[in-house]
């Protein structure tokens, strides 16, 4: 008998589409926005990649940066247009921070390194997801406000405001990059949590994994009959 395993649906198609539009725009923005990294000392010429990002290359990067910025800003509205009620439900879920989420965040660094101590039971989104959500929201606002000011209001707002916006844009960059690297690491490289990646591709995640990581949510889904469970051959699903 071929080994089969059960999967549970976590994300809808519009949500997955939104995630990847946002994620790819974000990645393009990070890569095209990194020009400033390469000249740490104004008394010396640019170092490393900096030598290749000047002149017309840099001008093209700026253009691509702006196109990607539009995509990033549009992505949330795309999702909102496709399934507005679900967006609100998900936001409600993500915005509320409970005691267990804080406990989770305190324990998680140890747990995901050594396998113990155990994590407190989590809902659909654990403390880490909520931290990611809040950083995405705050950096989104920071990027959008400072970016639009620098793009459209240069020379209109006082120079001091522009300089502050540049600082905010840069601060958001580091905050967002740090969170982004952690997010990508956990879903692509971490030996255990990378099983979660399938949820953002097919929409389904391994039921055992979901039960371990999101006990409260799985229980609630099964009890209420909302759970969409399917069986697949053990090798498929991209979760191993």
């Amino acid at each position: 008998m071929a080994a089969r395993k059960q999967q549970i649906r976590k994300f809808t198609r519009p949500q997955i589409l939104f995630h990847w539009v946002y994620a790819s725009a974000w990645l393009v923005l990070v890569l095209t926005g990194m020009t400033f990294l390469w000249r740490p000392d104004p008394h010396s010429p640019a170092v490393g990649l900096g030598a290749f990002l000047q002149g017309s290359v840099g001008q093209w990067l700026r253009l691509v940066h702006r196109v990607a910025a539009v995509a990033l800003m549009a992505a949330p509205f795309l999702w909102l247009a496709l399934e507005p009620r679900r967006v609100l439900a998900e936001l409600r879920e993500l915005m509320v921070i409970r005691g267990n989420d804080i406990k989770y965040l305190l324990v998680a660094p140890l747990h995901y390194t050594f396998g113990r101590p155990p994590l407190p039971p989590q809902g659909k989104y654990n403390g880490g997801h909520k931290l990611n959500f809040w950083i995405v929201v705050l950096t989104f606002l920071g990027f959008v406000v400072s970016g639009i000011t620098m793009w459209f209001f240069r020379g209109v707002v006082p120079a001091e405001t522009f300089r502050l916006m540049l600082l905010i844009h840069n601060f958001c960059f580091w905050l967002g990059l740090g969170m982004g690297i952690l997010h990508i690491y956990l879903t692509v490289f971490h030996p255990f949590t990378r099983q979660a990646l399938s949820a953002m591709i097919s929409g389904f995640v391994d039921l055992k994994y979901a039960t371990a990581e999101h006990a409260e949510w799985v229980e609630q889904q099964l009890r209420s009959g909302q759970a969409e469970v399917r069986e697949v051959p053990a090798a498929s699903g991209g979760s191993d």
């Binding site: 080994a3 395993k5 747990h111 995901y112 390194t113 050594f114 396998g115 113990r116 101590p117 155990p118 994590l119 039971p121 690491y185 490289f189 971490h190 030996p191 255990f192 055992k208 994994y209 039960t211 371990a212 006990a215 053990a234």
Partner: peptide, 28 residues
Amino acid sequence: VNWVAARRAFLQGEAAGHGAGDHAAGQP
């Protein structure tokens, strides 16, 4: 560093059965 440590912690139990190793045991 986490990757090296986590491979030890989470992939040990893989051979014994298709499970989450220590992790699932810790769940209520």
